[in-house]
Computed example of a mutant assay.
Amino acid sequence: MPLHVPPAPAPALRSVLTALGSPTAVREARTPSLRTAQGPATPELPLPVHVLEQAPAKDAPATRLAGWRFLIRCGDRAVAAAETMLTPDGWAFSHFFEGPYVASTERALQQAEALTHPYQPRLLSVPGLYMITLWLHGDCTADGGTGHPAPADLLVPLAPAPPGIAAHRPYRVAELLPVLTHRVPPIRLLGSPA
Rank of each mutant, 00 (worst) to 15 (best):
V49L: 15
A10Q: 07
P11S: 13
G75N: 04
R169W: 13
R35V: 10
D76C: 02
P121Q: 09
P56M: 05
T63M: 08
R188D: 03
A167D: 12
I132Y: 09
A82R: 09
P151H: 00
R27C: 12
G21T: 00
L3R: 04
P121W: 10
P160Q: 12
E175A: 14
S125K: 09
E44M: 12
V79M: 06
A62T: 14
W91T: 04
L52S: 06
G39P: 06
P2K: 04
L189G: 02
W68L: 06
H148P: 00
R107P: 00
A55V: 01
T87L: 10
L65T: 01
Q38D: 07
H168P: 02
P61G: 11
L177I: 08
A41G: 01
P61M: 02
A62S: 08
H117V: 14
L45Y: 03
G144Y: 11
F96R: 05
A159Y: 11
L17K: 08
P32T: 08
A161D: 01
A142D: 09
P163Y: 00
P160H: 14
P193I: 05
V49I: 13
S15A: 15
L71T: 04
L190R: 12
R69S: 14
H168Q: 15
S15N: 03
T63D: 05
R27P: 02
C140N: 10
D143V: 03
D89L: 08
P7H: 12
L129I: 13
R169C: 08
A150C: 05
L52G: 06
A8K: 05
S33C: 00
P118V: 10
G67T: 08
G164Y: 06
I72R: 06
S125M: 12
S192T: 11
F70W: 11
G145L: 09
L158F: 13
R77I: 10
P100Y: 01
P118H: 04
A150V: 06
A194F: 10
H148A: 07
E113L: 14
A159E: 15
P151I: 02
L177W: 07
F96W: 10
L20P: 06
E106T: 15
M85K: 15
A167Y: 03
H117Y: 08
